[in-house]
Amino acid sequence: MQTPQTSPQPVTVPVVEIAGLAKHYREGERERVVFAGLDFRMGAGEVVALLGRSGSGKSTLLNLVAGIDPPDAGAVRVLGSEITAMGEHDRTLFRRAHVGFVFQFFNLVPTLTVLENLLLPLELQGRRDGRGEAIALDLLAQVGLEDRAGSFPERLSGGEQQRVAIARALVHDPELVLADEPTGNLDEETGAAVLELLDRLTRRRGKTLLVVTHSPEVAAIADAVYTLHDGRLIRQTDETD
C-alpha cells in the first residue's frame, strides 16, 4: 500500500474504499503485476483525478471500482457495500443503481436515439413512466442538446456524443460517476467544454467523480489528484502540481 504523502481530506462516509487490492495479468508466459496491496478512499462529493502513464493500470483500477473486473485479492467497498464480495448479478444491479459511467469512446448505443440512450438507464431500473422522459429531456437541455433528442448518435459530433454520454451517466441519479479518459478522444476546445460540463453537473448534484485521465486540464478541476506509478498510488500535493 502506498500511503499518501499527505493525509486525505477528512471524510465521514467513504463512497469508495479500497483495501489491499491486488491485480495481475498474464502476458504469454510472464505475469505482470499491476498493483499489489493498494489502499484508497474517496469521500462523498469528492472529485478525484487519477493520472498515470499508459499501461500503468488506471483503467484497471476504474474497472475494479465499477465491479466489471474482479481483483485477485483485496476488497472494494462502494457506498459501504463490498462489491468484491458480491456475485456477478448483484454487482450488475448495484452498478445499475449507484454508478454512472463515461467512456473515452462514448459507447452510445448506435441504434437508439439520443433521448432513448438517456432513457436506457432509467428503463433498466424499471422506470418507464413519463417522468423519466422529463428528467432525460431536462438533462439534455442542461448539456445543450435538447434539440437533438430524436437524432441517432452517428449524426452527432464527438463532443456532442460525449455530452450525451455525460447526461446518460447522470440521468438515473447515481452517487458515483466513473469517467475513463472522457476528453481523450476530443480536441482541446471541445474537451475543455465537455470537462466543464462534467465538473459542473457532478458538483451541482453533489456526485462523487473518479476520472482517469492523461490531461492536466482534467486534473486541474479535481479536489485530489493521484498518480499511479509502478503499482503505487501517489497523491499529488498542490506543491507538486
Partner: peptide, 15 residues
C-alpha cells in the same frame, strides 16, 4: 462486443 460491454457496464444483466 464493445456495445454489449458498454451495456453491461451500465447495469444490463447477463440474463
Amino acid at each position: 462486443r464493445p456495445l454489449l460491454g458498454g451495456l453491461r457496464t451500465l447495469g444490463v444483466t447477463r440474463r
